[in-house]
Computed example of a mutant assay.
Amino acid sequence: MLKRILVIAAFAFSLPVLADSNAPWGSARDLDIHYAKQKVVFDTTTGSVEGLTSVLDRTSYLSVLNGADPFDNKIVIVLHGNVIPFFAIKNYAKYKALMDRAQSLSVGGIIEFRMCKLAAQSQGFTPKDIHGFVSMVPMGDAEIVRLQQEGYAYMR
């Protein structure tokens, strides 16, 4: 009975505090986690500059969090769908800043770009039409599955 009274009293005394606070649960905890030795495949189909910029931002930051170590860290961005035209040589002037950034991320071998050859062909592109920092694979979906079988974590 005493336990029940104490619980009710604790609840009653906390009500005014909760009613006056915009943060009834306090603030988020900041966890200090060290990331390393991650292999990740990004499935990328976005057709917007903002979407591709987000993928590049996320992969770049993930690489930094993993220590940017090419022996323990690998990120593969598989390109298919509406993202393909960004990587076309003929569109370089239009997407120069985006492509310069993508190419710079590929330096060092941690982040790789692989494009679905089948999807590129369906949009009228051949390997000679795509920037040289991109590698063509026969099929984007099959490449994603293969990488997952090799232990890569899937990201979209």
Results as ranks from 00 to 15, higher is better:
M1V: 12
L2I: 14
L2S: 10
R4H: 13
I5H: 09
F11N: 02
F13A: 11
F13W: 10
F13R: 00
F13I: 13
L15H: 08
P16Q: 04
P16E: 02
V17A: 12
L18M: 13
A19L: 15
P24N: 03
G26S: 02
G26H: 09
S27M: 08
R29S: 12
R29Y: 09
L31V: 12
H34K: 14
Y35K: 06
Y35E: 10
Y35P: 04
Y35G: 03
Y35F: 14
Q38S: 14
K39Y: 04
V41F: 01
F42H: 04
D43M: 08
T45N: 14
T46K: 07
G47E: 00
G47A: 04
V49C: 01
E50F: 02
E50S: 07
E50Q: 10
G51D: 02
L52H: 03
L52C: 10
L52V: 06
T53K: 09
T53C: 01
V55P: 11
V55W: 06
V55I: 13
R58A: 15
T59G: 12
T59S: 13
Y61W: 05
L62E: 04
S63C: 12
V64E: 09
V64Q: 09
A68C: 09
A68M: 12
D69C: 10
D69T: 10
P70F: 00
D72P: 08
D72S: 14
K74M: 13
I75Y: 06
V76E: 13
I77D: 06
V78R: 10
L79S: 06
L79Y: 01
H80G: 02
G81V: 09
G81M: 03
V83C: 09
V83K: 00
I84R: 00
P85G: 10
F87E: 05
A88V: 11
A88I: 10
I89V: 15
K90D: 10
K90S: 13
N91F: 04
K94A: 07
M99H: 00
M99E: 04
M99F: 00
R101T: 07
A102W: 08
A102S: 14
Q103T: 03
Q103S: 12
V107R: 15
V107N: 15
I110T: 08
I110E: 03
I110D: 07
I111E: 07
E112P: 00
F113Q: 04
F113Y: 12
R114M: 11
M115F: 04
C116D: 09
K117G: 12
A119Y: 07
A120M: 08
S122E: 13
G124F: 05
G124H: 00
F125V: 11
T126M: 14
T126L: 15
P127G: 05
P127W: 08
D129T: 00
I130N: 01
I130A: 10
G132Y: 02
F133L: 06
V134G: 05
V134F: 07
V134A: 03
V137W: 06
V137L: 07
P138T: 08
A142E: 05
E143H: 02
E143I: 07
R146F: 13
L147R: 06
Q148T: 08
E150I: 01
G151C: 01
Y152P: 12
Y152K: 11
M155V: 13
R156E: 04
